[in-house]
């Protein structure tokens, strides 16, 4: 066995990333706005970053057992929307409000996400929870919506106040989505 003290090895545990923390506030309940927070949280956890997600207002739909598997996508008010792969082709805003269109656009987006082998929201939460991510629910939102811990995704560690969240994410980098 040769001594390999000179071997060039990747710096997996470099001091610079030691103690790095990320806080993500998820405030939206649309399908397309649920993913950025989940993807970034998963990426951060994979890099060994301590990650906390705080679900508030419409973001509660991401952890509410009744809604988390059924988020929807509408392009109403989103002028950037174009049919898949057809850049520069706009879709009439008026059409977005017609009955059945949200169901159709939701189905299309879910298919595109599944094609990339990216999980649906509940399974994504399992992945983040299993990776050691911390999930927190907003106290004021829970009170407004009359929801309790048993109504929420099982991996949610607690319903906490905004100040509790600020306290436990001291020194963290923060994302508001």
């Amino acid at each position: 066995m040769t001594e390999t003290e000179t071997a060039f090895v990747p710096a997996f545990d470099d001091a610079a990333s030691e103690g790095r923390k990320l806080a993500i506030i998820c405030s939206k309940g649309n399908l397309d706005m649920a993913y950025p927070g989940l993807i970034l949280a998963n990426a951060a956890l994979g890099e060994g970053v301590e990650t906390h997600l705080f679900f508030t207002f419409w973001g509660f739909d991401m952890i509410n057992k009744q809604t988390m598997a059924d988020l929807k996508f509408s392009y109403l008010g989103n002028t950037a929307m174009h049919p898949p792969g057809m850049f520069g082709v706009s879709m009439p805003q008026g059409m977005a409000g017609m009955p059945g269109v949200t169901a159709l656009t939701t189905k299309m987006m879910k298919r595109q996400i599944a094609d990339l082998d990216v999980p649906e929201v509940p399974e994504f939460l399992d992945l983040i929870h299993g990776s050691g991510g911390h999930l927190w629910a907003c106290r004021m939102s829970a009170d407004m919506m009359k929801l309790h811990e048993e109504d929420l995704y099982d991996g949610v560690e607690g319903i906490i106040s905004a100040s509790d969240f600020i306290e436990l994410t001291e020194g963290a980098q923060l994302l508001f989505i």
Binding site: M1, T2, T4, T6, A7, F8, P10, A11
Partner: peptide
């Protein structure tokens, strides 16, 4: 780099 007495090519991260 030399790993276990074997010369191997590695990328810029190792």
């Amino acid at each position: 780099t030399s790993i276990n007495g074997q010369q191997v090519e590695v990328n810029e991260e190792g």
